[in-house]
Nucleic acid binder design. Structure first.
Lengths: 196, 196
DNA sequence: CCGATTGTTTACTAGTCAGTAAAGAATCTA
DNA sequence: TAGATTCTTTACTGACTAGTAAACAATCGG
């Protein structure tokens, strides 16, 4: 009912998310979002609400879209699926260095606002829970396949910390060799879980 | 020569650092810093330069002061010194929950500005290098004491990622039990390095 | 075709932002 | 005491901030 919207809100939120991802929430102005989307501010506000709402939607887009794809590749995948994620993060640096240095929108937003914005906090809980579910599921598959023995939840927690640690190292300016060393160290830890 | 400064610049930078730590760089206004220090903005600018200079000095204060104290407790300390750091991070949550949830000023600043501000980037390199030095030194001591065997650098990298992963989890709003589980998982990984 | 509803456009606002100019005050060296 | 130097105080700036009011346009159901 009423006049139909002339622009694709999903496409717009991806462009919005990209700006937040690159600059961070506070350093992003509405003018930046107007430029990135080609939409006047009043259109953005009408479609998405406040600037903070736009961030929450950007995080939801990544959590439910691209990241969920990654989680599904890890679910039930055994040790190789976990190690593969770490390696692919390191390899992104060679394929798209600029993008790779931006780390992860969700992780960046959690560090910037996780302890002050309850709605960001909720998404932090969702993110950590989903990552742990994926790792736990992959580790349980590894147990069933006889790759490893016992203690799945502790190892899922370790993998979560390794993952977050990699993203922070990347954003803090670690160079290619340093990141490759981190990915190798993470892979070695995962390998060390194999039953011998 | 000239009129002596009436306030303690070291004390002021600690107060400045505290504001950056709690709110982040971009979310902090000069008015916030005036209130926290009790100094008019012109005095802050005269003493420290721009807002960014104030952040760099805040990071340097932590790197060369409180953090260096922690690094020195880890240097040459063996596996227990490494595990002790993780446990003390988890325990801070019970002693001072509000402060604990703020994570680490250096890590927070690296995630906010590490890929866009070269001067923050430099401090990221220094931070990662110093942490790795401390862990490497502790691990080499562990080798000498016969606690572990081989492969010190890979394990130092693992410990670095675990450390950063804990700080991010904390800032992203993980509750007490979740953080305790992370610290236990990190400790278990370190224990698993012991030669059997 | 009509009223209701929604989207778009333009212009605007009050407030806040980082940073500074300028004058007066206190201490230095000589 | 004199002049140079530095700090402190006050007031200010122009630019930018997030968010909105209101007129206009387009599409809806009936």
């Amino acid at each position: 009912m009423g006049r139909p919207r002339e622009f694709d809100t999903d496409a717009a939120i991806i462009q919005v998310a990209d700006v937040f991802w690159g600059a961070g929430f506070e350093a992003t102005s509405i003018a930046d979002l107007e430029e990135a989307t080609g939409l006047a501010r009043a259109r953005l506000y009408a479609a998405f609400g406040t600037k903070r709402d736009m961030l929450h939607r950007s995080m939801d887009y990544y959590l439910d879209g691209p990241l969920e794809m990654v989680f599904r590749r890890v679910d039930g995948g055994g040790l190789d699926a976990i190690a593969g994620w770490f390696q692919s993060i390191a390899q992104l640096r060679e394929r798209d260095p600029q993008r790779a240095m931006m780390g992860c929108l969700v992780v960046n937003s959690l560090v910037e606002l996780g302890d002050t914005d309850p709605r960001v906090n909720e998404r932090g809980d969702r993110y950590r829970a989903r990552v742990l579910t994926a790792f736990t599921s992959a580790l349980e598959a590894a147990v069933e396949q006889g790759e490893i023995e016992g203690d799945v939840s502790q190892r899922a927690n370790v993998a979560l910390m390794l993952l977050l640690g990699m993203f922070v190292s990347i954003k803090s300016g670690a160079d290619g060799p340093a990141i490759a060393a981190l990915a190798d160290a993470a892979t070695a830890t995962i390998d060390s879980w194999r039953a011998r």
